[in-house]
Amino acid sequence: MSRFALRLSMVLMLSASAAHAQNLSPAAPLSPQLGKVASGELVAAWDMTILPSGDGLPQGSGTTETGARLYLEHCVACHGEGGVGGLNNVLVSDEPRPFGETGGKRTVGNYWPYATTLFDYIRRAMPYSHPQSLDDNEVYALTAYLLYRNGVVPAHFEANASALPKVVMPNQEYFIRAYPDWNP
């Protein structure tokens, strides 16, 4: 029996006895099983999850040069020229050194542990006023441009499904997974 099946049967037993104690029918967790099998189409249309391994990254690609142009068109109004000095979040760190070493203002280049996160976030949430309006090539290009501006990749860089997971972000080794050991 799997870990979860075991846990679930314990839950069932516990809630059954609790129900009994209150003189209720012990039927509580019986499921009517009304879920409809999802079409592959729906899953494909909705599944935007990208893992650091690159799992979920779409086809397509984009270069730093294209990204620079797109940035001026879609992002500069809120994030400032070259990613600094805008009304909203700073997107470029002063130096490409890990935050864990030098401190300073946390942003993409000196703090974010994975480059895949940048693609994922721009694709789902930016530009703020028109989220999900850019195509995957454009998102790759903007990702490449912001990585370049942060000193993480060279001036000519093409972001795509195989290149992005290989980018090692400067602060990555400073991250520790706290779950499940951390207590507040």
Binding site: N171, I176, R177, Y179, W182, N183
Partner: peptide, 10 residues
């Protein structure tokens, strides 16, 4: 300088 990911409980 290290950063903790997944600090869940309040």
């Amino acid at each position: 300088g290290k950063s903790l990911l997944f600090t869940f409980p309040m």
